[in-house]
Design a protein around this nucleic acid. Structure first.
Lengths: 219, 219
DNA sequence: TGTCAACTGTCAGAGGCTGTCATTAGCCTC
DNA sequence: GAGGCTAATGACAGCCTCTGACAGTTGACA
């Protein structure tokens, strides 16, 4: 099964495969639905399984744990983001490529998510993640893994050795740091629209340069 | 009780307090000892409690969970780092203050840690954290909290409003991003000496400027 | 010294997660 | 289309983390 979970392509699979896909989708939907209404901590795996009329054991055959179910939607968008970076023209400077890839990602998010759940639900889940300590922690760890992948990707683009030249990892770390700030501000702020996320991201990325200039008091 | 755990100052406390401190230290030592030898996942709370001859319930009265015990040493050094930033002279530019505070932190780490466990054990524990998914996740979440605290601190230094001016948060995010890269490289690399950590940190922080310059191929 | 409050141990139980094994249900061949 | 093969599932049993409740113990302090 596709780890990321919802790539529907190729020839029509057999009944068995279709059934599995349906079960997984149903579990994911039920989980997100419950998480966003009752909260992550107040939702038990038994409840999720019961909502889909499946045994608890089966839930754990589709998801490595409660956590994975909660982060599955995120994983999908992240995968598309990485693909977008990979697709950027080679002549773009690294930071520029990363910047355009995220902003593009936010623009295309509906296409990716809507196949499984309404985007609105995805946005609500995003806030659950940000406000639930264990989920935030897991999310940050995954972000670290993504950063490693991106660093290798950037190094390749620029014809560098990731383990010899610090710049790819530093670039991605700087970028990732800013992205995480915007994620948190957006999810705790008043305007949770996609447009707000876009402008916030762009605005904050623009601040990296000024920040390095020593004296901030002169604006 | 002090959350960070091991600030021994002020007048000599009563027998009860001293006993509590001893129990906590013993639990922490036992935990770290077991984590670094058997590994975090293969150590149960029962084993830690048994090693100190205390009930499992008591362990949970001193630490909110297994995780907190594993990150307690880290928490101590982080607290000292934040204090160091606070102590930097006001005329230093933000990034400079942060940089000097970390490097200072590494220099003084023995003074902070040695009161509880040998530094060597601390360094080994550091690597356990970095190589244990759940611990790394928790560590990253705490780092995010620290960043928020630092952002407020920097904003205050510079006479800015954290919620109005993006720069404090961006600065800290950039800094934190680089620090985390060095942490990971160091803990997975061949040379785990303190000196290696110091030079790695300095070297990588120096790369932030160059990274933002567009064309990397011209070195 | 006796009372109070803090600390501890014991017990019971919820919830996440795993191994095992029997049963069910697609799939494929003859 | 009957039967064998194998993947998927359900049903337990059990480990581990963590919490609440209650009773026993031990410093602190008048």
């Amino acid at each position: 099964m596709d780890t990321v979970g919802n790539t529907r392509t190729g020839p029509r699979p057999g009944l068995r495969e279709r059934k599995k896909q349906r079960t997984r989708d149903a579990l994911l939907r039920a989980a997100v639905e419950l998480f966003t209404t009752r909260g992550y901590d107040h939702t038990t795996v038994d409840e999720i399984a019961a909502a889909v009329d499946v045994s608890q054991r089966t839930f754990f055959r589709y998801f490595s744990g409660k956590e994975e179910a909660a982060l599955a939607l995120q994983a999908m968008t992240v995968a598309h983001f990485v693909a977008a970076v990979r697709a950027r023209p080679a002549h773009e400077p690294p930071m520029e490529a990363l910047r355009r890839a995220v902003l593009d990602g936010w623009d295309r998010i509906s296409e990716v998510i809507e196949a499984v759940v309404p985007v609105e639900l995805y946005l609500r889940m995003y806030r659950v993640i940000e406000s639930t300590p264990v989920l935030l922690a897991a999310h940050l760890r995954r972000s670290a893994e993504t950063e490693e992948e991106l660093a290798r990707l950037i190094a390749e683009r620029e014809g560098l050795d990731v383990d010899a030249d610090p710049r790819p990892r530093v670039a991605v770390a700087v970028f990732g740091g800013v992205i995480r700030v915007t994620e948190r501000l957006w999810s705790t702020g008043p305007d949770v629209s996609l447009e707000a996320m876009r402008t916030l991201t762009a605005e904050y990325l623009d601040q990296v340069g000024p920040v390095l200039a020593g004296d901030w008091r002169v604006r």
